[in-house]
Amino acid sequence: MSEARSAKPLIVRKLIVDERNELFDARAMRSLEFVSDFSRIREYAAVILEPCPDAFKEGSLLEQQLSEIIKNGIKHGNRCDPSKRLRVWFDFRKRVRFIVEDEGEGFAGLDDWNDFYRRRQEALHNQDLDAFLALASYRGPRSDDSDGGNSLIAALEYWNGGMIYNEARNKVGVVRWYTGGSAHGAERSTTR
C-alpha cells in the first residue's frame, strides 16, 4: 500500500436483518434437505448446482460461495449435530437465488460482525496495513482452524442483489444477478 489516503469515499456494506424481505419468498423455489455432516459440505454444494446453467457458475466461484453458506449453517448454526438438518432452496431462472436455513441458535454476533467489517474497511481505506492485518479475519466465540473468518466479507460483494438474514438469524437469503452471462457490479448490493 502507498502512503496516500485513497480519494474514494468509504462505503461500508452491512449484513441486514429483515424477516419480510422478498428474498425469503420461497414460492416456486425447489429445495433439498441435508444432514449436518461437515465432511460433505462441498458435495452438497455440487448436488444443488447440478441443474444450474454453466453461464452462472463463473469457474468454481458460485460453488465456493454456496459452500460457504452451507458451511456456516452446518458448522456455526447446527454445530455439526447430525440430528439437525440444513434446508436449501434454490432457483436458477435468470439469476441465482438461495435460501439456506439451519436449526441452530442463530447468528447472535451479527451486529458485532458489522462493526468488525466497518473497522476492517476503514483500515483498508486509511491504508493502515498493520491495523488491516490485525482485522483481516473475523474471530467469533467458537472460531477454529477451519474458520478463515472472511467468507461473509466476500459474500457481501458477491451476492450483488442482497444478503438478508431472518429475525432469528438462522436463515439467510441471497441473490446474484447477471447481465449477458457476467455478473453486475456491486452497485446493486443489499437493496431492500
Binding site: 459452500s67 492485518l133 479475519s137 474458520d147 478463515g148 473468518g149 472472511n150 466476500a154
Partner: peptide, 20 residues
C-alpha cells in the same frame, strides 16, 4: 490451485500475519 475458499484465504492471512 483452481479452487480457493475462505479457509484457504484464512490460511494466507495467517501466514501473512506470521511473516509480518
Amino acid at each position: 490451485v483452481e479452487y480457493l475458499d475462505s479457509t484457504g484465504v484464512g490460511s494466507i492471512i495467517r501466514l501473512s500475519q506470521a511473516l509480518r
